[in-house]
């Protein structure tokens, strides 16, 4: 079964190690502006949300790509840009509702997560485990348990004498 990139914003501490490690892995330089993942921050409210390609089941980027440069890698589940075909029209950046694709400020090329061939470097570096690369069933279980915990707290309150 394919694994998915599972994001839990509640665990994110905003350290931006994922951004840095991503740029070092892909571009061999440290430059968060060239990373495939970003932490959107609302600093004065303490809100940190990792923003990265979600590798949709029906990718809008794939649909809008006029040269069919975007395809799924069946092994890793990653929706990947074939740079040999990509003409750099940036329609994928324009249409993605999740800001999953971005533009490299230095080269103008489209930047998009490729799940590092099945071993995402951001996941490897994320100590608080806000980013995990897990099987879909495991992702479901984690969500379920979290929801159930809230439910259980509620039940305990109701049942309390």
């Amino acid at each position: 079964m394919q694994k998915i990139l599972f994001i839990d914003p509640e665990k994110c501490t905003g350290c931006r190690i994922c951004e840095t490690a991503c740029s070092m892995h892909h571009e061999k330089v440290c430059n968060p502006a060239r990373a495939r993942i970003h932490i959107a921050k609302w600093e004065t409210a303490g809100l940190y949300i990792p923003v990265v390609c979600l590798h949709c089941e029906t990718p809008i980027c794939e649909t809008v790509c006029p040269v069919r440069a975007i395809k799924r890698n069946e092994k890793t589940g990653a929706v990947i840009i074939d740079y040999n075909l990509c003409v750099g029209c940036r329609l994928c950046v324009l249409y993605c509702p999740f800001a999953g694709a971005g533009i490299d400020p230095l080269t103008g090329k489209v930047l998009k997560c490729d799940l590092c061939d099945g071993d995402p470097v951001c996941v490897r570096f994320c100590e608080p485990k806000a980013l995990q690369y897990v099987k879909a069933t495991r992702a479901n279980t984690m969500k379920m348990r979290k929801a159930a915990e809230k439910f259980s707290e509620l039940m305990q309150k109701l049942l309390a004498p």
Binding site: A21, M24, E27, K28, V29, C30, N31, A33, L106, V121
Partner: peptide, 18 residues
């Protein structure tokens, strides 16, 4: 800023950071 920081040995450095 959006300027690159370039390293002598980026890959090894990344592993050592971990």
């Amino acid at each position: 800023g959006t300027m690159n920081l370039e390293f002598a040995k980026p890959e090894k450095l990344l592993d050592y950071c971990k």
